[in-house]
């Protein structure tokens, strides 16, 4: 709590200082500022080298006709690659699949994560054992987990496929396979959601809950009226992180279906165009569009949650 308070305090201090900023700084303050710059510049340089440069280069490539296989045909094409992507049925299909996976997996994870978080928060007996048990899926490498799901759902070899009618091969049907992908995602990342929400639960003061109890609020009322509003920052962080992660889903699909039978996400589409077709122009355009989509999601969510953003003026 004190951390958030000090974070809030800073902008105010700045605001007070702002009018007098042009005043000459003392020698000590100036050299301290220089040291500050010197100390953080290596990090800044490296951040620029590893993020800003590739990003700018991807934007540049997305405006080029650039196929590794036809290096001599490379030339500037403006927005033609974006036009090709945005008018392609493959992009919109994969976009839909991605949105479905994101929406379904994040909402299921949120509800399950909340249940798990409450369990971890409230349990008194065997608390450590419970927390460990809940966190196990998160500790397993995604690719390994995806392979076990894949084998489990393959007819003749898998125990889960064995529960289905003998002619069923769910991984070859678009929406059944998407369902399995969502299941694999939920299984894998619910613990992460639960962990973040647990941190949020710790923010809720017990006195407040006890006071509400004294006033006759039911357990549900206490949860909806007190716990949830106070957890808003934690919920925002958890849902935002998971939404951005889910929107960029790659590994589970890559192992489970390789994006076959219409189960590809936008990331799989980008990968296939970059590394299978070696079409850097189209592939970069897809990557930039994913980046923009992620940016929009983050913007809308932070706006939607409004003042609940950690570090903002009011909680």
């Amino acid at each position: 709590m004190s951390d958030t308070l000090s974070l809030q305090a800073q902008p105010r201090v700045e605001a007070v200082r702002a009018p007098s900023r042009r005043r000459r700084l003392s020698e000590g303050a100036r050299s301290e500022r220089r040291l500050g710059w010197a100390l953080c510049s290596p990090a800044a340089v490296i951040m620029l080298a590893v993020t800003a440069y590739p990003l700018a280069y991807a934007v540049y490539l997305s405006l080029e006709r650039y196929d590794l296989r036809f290096p001599r045909q490379s030339h500037f094409v403006g927005y033609a690659n974006y036009q090709a992507v945005l008018t392609s049925g493959f992009w919109w299909h994969d976009f839909l699949v991605t949105v479905v996976i994101t929406a379904a997996s994040v909402s299921i994870e949120f509800i399950l994560g909340m249940v798990f978080a409450l369990m971890m928060h409230r349990t008194i007996v065997g608390r450590n054992a419970l927390r460990t048990a809940i966190l196990i899926p998160y500790g397993i490498v995604t690719v390994v987990a995806a392979f076990s799901w894949q084998y489990a759902w393959t007819p003749a070899t898998g125990y889960l496929a064995g529960l289905l009618p003998s002619s069923a091969a769910p991984l070859t049907n678009t929406w059944q396979a998407v369902g399995i992908i969502i299941l694999a995602e939920v299984w894998k990342t619910t613990p992460f959601m639960a962990l973040l929400l647990l941190a949020g639960l710790a923010l809720v003061p017990n006195d407040l809950l006890n006071a509400a109890k004294m006033d006759g609020a039911s357990a549900w009322q206490r949860f909806v009226r007190i716990t949830l509003p106070l957890m808003k920052p934690a919920i925002l962080v958890a849902v935002l992180f998971r939404t951005l992660d889910a929107f960029r889903i790659f590994d589970n699909i890559y192992i489970l279906t390789q994006g076959a039978h219409g189960t590809g996400s936008v990331s799989i589409l980008g990968y296939d165009n970059l590394f299978e077709a070696l079409n850097l122009g189209i592939g970069s355009a897809i990557s930039v569009l994913i980046f923009i989509a992620v940016g929009i999601i983050a913007f809308v969510m932070i706006r939607g949650f409004g003042t609940a953003v950690p570090g903002s003026e009011n909680l």
């Binding site: 220089r34 040291l35 710059w37 010197a38 510049s41």
Partner: peptide, 26 residues
């Protein structure tokens, strides 16, 4: 903390710090 920073300044290496660190990493 500030005392420590001043001592760092005394070493006189601060202006080179950035470039040296950058080179070391590269």
């Amino acid at each position: 903390m500030t005392r420590l920073l001043r001592r760092v300044r005394v070493w006189g290496a601060r202006r080179l710090l950035a470039s040296v660190a950058g080179l070391a990493l590269l």
